[in-house]
Every structure is written in C-alpha cells, then in structure tokens.
C-alpha cells in the first residue's frame, strides 16, 4: 500500500482517499459497512461552537448528474463533538480532519482552539464556503481580505495545520487561494458546492426550503478539475480535491490536475462502499499507467516550459 501513502502538513495518510465533510457525518453510520481504518482520513461534519438545528425541509433536490443540498450546518455543537464523536473515532487508525464553521470570526477561533487540541484531530478544515447559512460560511470565502484575516487568526490558535476549504462561487478562486496562503494556510481543500436552484414545475417555486442549495455530484467535476488545475499552479499549497469524485479514475484526474489527495462526497450516498472500492482499485490503475506511486501522476496536466497552449511536443 506504500504506493498510495501521502504526507501532507499534519497528515500522514496511508492512502489519499477520504470522505468529504458533511457527507459522512462523524463516521458512525458508515462504520456499519466497512472498517473505517481503511480510509486515509475522515473530514468530519462541520462543527460550530453551539448545536445547530439546520435549515427547514426540504433540504435536498436532485438535478441532472447531481444534487442540491441546503442542510444548514446541522451539528451537535463543539462540546458534544469533543466529548462524544471524536473519542468514538479514536478506535480507528485515522488522522481526523475537523471541519470548523461559525457565524463570526470568534466562532471559528473558539472551535479551532478547542478542537485542534483533541487527540485524533490532525488538521483543521476551515469552512469559509458553506453556501447555505445566512451568516458566516461563504461570507468569509468570497472576499480575499476577509479570508486572509480569518486564516491568520485561526492559525494563531490552532495546534494543528490549517487547510482552507475554498468556494467555487467567486470570480477568481486563484486570488482566494493566494489570500489564504498569505494568511498562513498549510493547505487547501477544494471545491465546496456551487450555488444552484431547482424549481417545482407546477408551482414555479423553489423545491428547497432555503430556495438555493449547493450543487454537488458528477455534474460539478469539470468545474472542480479546472479550479484545481489553476490553483495548483499558482500556489505552493497542497490541495485535497473534491467535487464530483465517484471513481478511482476521477481520483487520478484530480491528482493529474495537481491535487495531492482526494475526498469523496455525494458518491457515498449512492454507494456507501465507494471510498473502500476506490482505495482497492487504485493500485491496478497505477499499474495500467506505469506509475510506481500515485503522486508520480501529480500535475500531469500542467503545461511545461516551452510548451505552447494546445500543442504537445
């Protein structure tokens, strides 16, 4: 399995595959299907200082090759996560990435300080890109100055490396990535969902109670891939990629685009075994591509010096 091991700031991963935040809860449900120690990591559900009830229902709607969701950061709150969920996860041989969220900067700082001290939390994922809450979330992720400041503040208090989760709902994601790098981020995770909408044919009204929701699933993979391709060449930060990944070949695409690891979101709902299956399938794909190690494929898509766009030597 050495061919899949990846070292990133704070994270010594036996393989670069992990479920994405919000799509796997705190692991309990999926532990009924397979041994979670097989995973590289788990990005746990966003945690806020206090319990959050989330948005009214309906919270999801299907779209072509994808789904919209507006869960609204429902979570049991910092105290319960630290006292119950994280200790439960200690039974698995896993570095945990804790996704943290809040309505204001102080919320992020409070959660970062406490949760980064937990035994099995190896890194934080700063959620400045949730499109489904009125305050906080994406408000921090669409202005470079705000994102830089928040990253710096969280870095000050965190005992573990900080990855910033970027929103695709911006004009220039590269600018956002650079701002986070300046703020001291140790890595990036990208992308969060794209804001979208679906209307009821008969009434003409939005299907989701929140009116808009975040689009995920295979439909957004091309967008995510393009963004990883651009950002990976403009910053030195390692990237954990997500956005429509549902197969081992999708993972290879994102590594080729410049990512160092990959997270699987919506696909878990379709196939609860998807992460396990991807991990099992990757070695044979490396054989097929003649690669010794998965990261040998990193950045294959990048343009080399002297190579004109659209032409390959």
């Amino acid at each position: 399995m050495d061919r899949l091991s990846v070292s990133l700031p704070g994270l010594s991963l036996k393989n670069p595959i992990m479920p994405a935040s919000g799509c796997f809860g705190f692991g309990r449900e999926y532990s009924q299907f397979y041994d979670l120690s097989e995973l590289g990591s788990i990005m746990i559900k966003a945690t806020t200082p206090h319990p959050r009830a989330g948005n009214p229902v309906p919270r999801v709607a299907e779209t072509s090759s994808g789904m919209l969701n507006a869960i609204g950061l429902q979570n049991p709150g910092l105290e319960k996560v630290i006292e119950t969920e994280l200790p439960w996860l200690e039974q698995f041989d896993l570095p945990i990435i804790a996704n943290i969220a809040g309505s204001e900067a102080e919320d992020y700082i409070k959660v970062a300080e406490k949760i980064s001290a937990a035994k099995n939390v190896a890194a934080l994922e700063l959620n400045i890109s949730c499109p489904n809450v009125k305050e906080g979330g994406i408000a921090f992720g669409t202005d470079p100055e705000t994102a830089r400041n928040l990253t710096a503040k969280v870095k000050e208090v965190s005992q573990v490396p900080v990855y910033v989760k970027l929103s695709p709902n911006v004009t220039s994601i590269t600018e956002m990535a650079k701002a986070c790098e300046e703020g001291g981020a140790d890595g990036l995770t990208m992308i969060n969902t794209l804001v979208g909408m679906r209307l009821d044919h008969k009434t003409g009204k939005p299907v989701i109670a929140n009116k808009t929701g975040g689009l995920s699933g295979p439909a957004i993979k091309p967008v995510a891939l393009r963004m990883v391709y651009e950002v990976s060449q403009q910053t030195t930060l390692p990237i954990i990629a997500m956005g429509g990944i549902s197969s081992a070949w999708d993972v290879i695409d994102f590594i080729s685009a410049g990512a160092s690891a990959a997270a699987v979101g919506t696909a878990n709902f379709v196939n609860p075994f998807v992460c396990q299956e991807i991990i099992q399938e990757l070695p044979s794909i490396l054989d097929e591509l003649g690669a010794d190690h998965i990261l040998d494929l990193r950045g294959r898509s990048w343009m080399r010096h002297g190579e004109a766009a659209g032409h390959r030597a």
């Binding site: 919000g22 799509c23 796997f24 809860g25 309990r28 449900e29 999926y30 009924q32 989330g54 229902v57 309906p58 919270r59 999801v60 709607a61 789904m67 969701n69 869960i71 429902q74 878990n268 709902f269 609860p272």
Partner: peptide
C-alpha cells in the same frame, strides 16, 4: 426527501 438513507447526510 432522502439523501443517504442511513442517517449521515441529515437531509
């Protein structure tokens, strides 16, 4: 309306 069906997605 359901997502995962197993209690993880909170839809």
């Amino acid at each position: 309306r359901m997502g995962c069906g197993v209690g993880a997605c909170l839809a």
